Deep mutational scan, measured.
Amino acid sequence: MGFKLLSKLLVYLTASIMAIASPLAFSVDSSGEYPTVSEIPVGEVRLYQIADGVWSHIATQSFDGAVYPSNGLIVRDGDELLLIDTAWGAKNTAALLAEIEKQIGLPVTRAVSTHFHDDRVGGVDVLRAAGVATYASPSTRRLAEVEGNEIPTHSLEGLSSSGDAVRFGPVELFYPGAAHSTDNLIVYVPSASVLYGGCAIYELSRTSAGNVADADLAEWPTSIERIQQHYPEAQFVIPGHGLPGGLDLLKHTTNVVKAHTNRSVVE
Rank of each mutant, 00 (worst) to 15 (best):
V112C: 04
A95W: 06
L9N: 06
G78I: 10
L243T: 11
D77N: 05
P221A: 09
G122A: 11
P35Y: 12
L97I: 04
S191R: 07
D216M: 10
S191W: 08
V108C: 01
N149K: 10
E33P: 08
Y12V: 09
L10K: 06
F26D: 15
H180I: 00
R46N: 12
E172P: 01
V132R: 01
D64Y: 15
A19M: 15
L9G: 12
S62E: 13
T93H: 03
A234W: 02
G122L: 14
G169P: 04
P170K: 10
R76C: 04
K8L: 07
E172F: 05
T182R: 08
E39T: 06
T254F: 07
G78L: 10
T253C: 00
I186N: 03
V112R: 03
G148V: 05
A130E: 09
N149Q: 11
I201K: 00
A200T: 11
D85G: 00
E99V: 15
I104F: 05
P244F: 05
R167E: 07
P221H: 09
L204N: 10
D79E: 12
G53M: 07
D183P: 00
R120S: 14
S191Q: 07
S30K: 14
A215R: 11
E203D: 04
D125Y: 10
A15I: 15
D248Y: 05
P244Y: 10
S208Y: 14
Y175D: 02
R142H: 10
A215H: 14
S162G: 13
Y175I: 02
L83S: 02
V126Q: 13
T36R: 09
R76S: 11
S30V: 09
G105F: 09
Y135V: 01
I17Y: 08
L96G: 02
G65A: 10
A215D: 13
D118C: 14
A179H: 02
I84S: 01
H230Q: 08
T222E: 13
S155G: 12
T153K: 10
S161G: 14
Q228M: 15
T222V: 13
L106R: 12
R263Q: 11
Y68W: 06
V11F: 08
S205K: 11
K4E: 13
G72L: 00
L47R: 01
T93Q: 01
I58H: 14
S22E: 12
N211E: 13
P176M: 03
A25I: 06
G105M: 11
L5T: 09
T140N: 03
Q235C: 05
S162M: 14
D64H: 14
S139Q: 10
A59C: 08
D183I: 01
D118L: 07
S205D: 10
V54Q: 03
G242H: 03
S208G: 12
T114S: 14
T140H: 03
G210N: 15
I20K: 08
D77I: 03
L9V: 09
G148L: 07
G43M: 05
T93L: 00
A209W: 13
Q49V: 11
T109R: 14
L73Q: 01
N184H: 02
A94R: 13
T261M: 06
W88F: 15
G169C: 04
Y231D: 00
N211D: 09
D79T: 14
S193I: 04
V189G: 01
V11S: 09
S155W: 11
A215P: 07
E99R: 14
S113W: 04
T93W: 00
V212M: 06
T261C: 09
Y196V: 02
L97Y: 03
L106D: 13
P35K: 06
D164Q: 14
M1H: 03
F26H: 15
P23I: 13
V126T: 13
L96H: 02
V237L: 06
G131E: 10
P176F: 00
R46P: 03
A94V: 12
I17W: 05
V166L: 11
T182D: 11
S31T: 12
P138W: 14
H260W: 06
I17D: 05
W88G: 00
I74W: 02
S22D: 10
S62L: 12
D118W: 07
L97C: 01
S137Y: 04
S208T: 13
D125S: 10
M1N: 04
A165W: 13
E145M: 10
P232G: 11
R206E: 14
G122P: 04
F3H: 15
P190N: 07
P232W: 13
V112L: 14
R226P: 04
G242Q: 02
E225R: 12
L96D: 01
M18P: 05
T93K: 00
V166R: 09
N262W: 06
E33G: 08
G122W: 12
T140A: 04
L195W: 00
Q61C: 06
S193R: 12
E101V: 09
T93S: 11
D214P: 08
A59F: 03
Y231C: 04
I238C: 02
L159Q: 00
V67D: 08
H241W: 00
G123M: 03
F168S: 03
C199A: 00
E145Y: 15
S208C: 06
E39Y: 15
T86D: 01
Y202G: 04
R263C: 14
P239T: 04
S139R: 10
H117I: 01
G43S: 10
L217Q: 08
A165E: 13
S27R: 11
H180K: 00
I227C: 01
F63T: 07
G53S: 11
A21Q: 07
V112G: 03
Q49D: 07
N262T: 06
Q235A: 06
V256C: 04
L173T: 02
I40S: 11
L47N: 00
Y202P: 02
V28K: 09
R142Y: 14
A130Q: 15
V28C: 07
P176R: 01
L173G: 01
E33K: 12
T36C: 06
M18C: 05
K8C: 08
A111M: 14
K8S: 13
S70V: 05
N255P: 04
K258Y: 09
D125C: 04
K251Y: 15
E145Q: 09
S56G: 09
Y34G: 09
I224A: 05
T60C: 14
T36A: 07
Y188T: 02
Y48I: 10
S22N: 07
G2Q: 09
S191H: 14
G158D: 14
S31I: 06
A94Q: 14
S208Q: 10
L82A: 12
R206Y: 10
L159W: 03
T253F: 01
S208A: 12
T93F: 01
A90D: 12
L195D: 00
G32W: 09
A200M: 14
I238V: 06
L159M: 12
E233G: 12
M18Y: 15
V265E: 10
Y34N: 06
L9Y: 08
V112T: 03
G245P: 00
V265Q: 14
A136W: 03
L204D: 15
F236L: 11
G242T: 03
G245F: 00
A19G: 10
D29Y: 06
Q103P: 04
A51Y: 15
G32P: 05
L47M: 13
G72D: 03
E101M: 15
A165N: 15
W88S: 01
A21E: 10
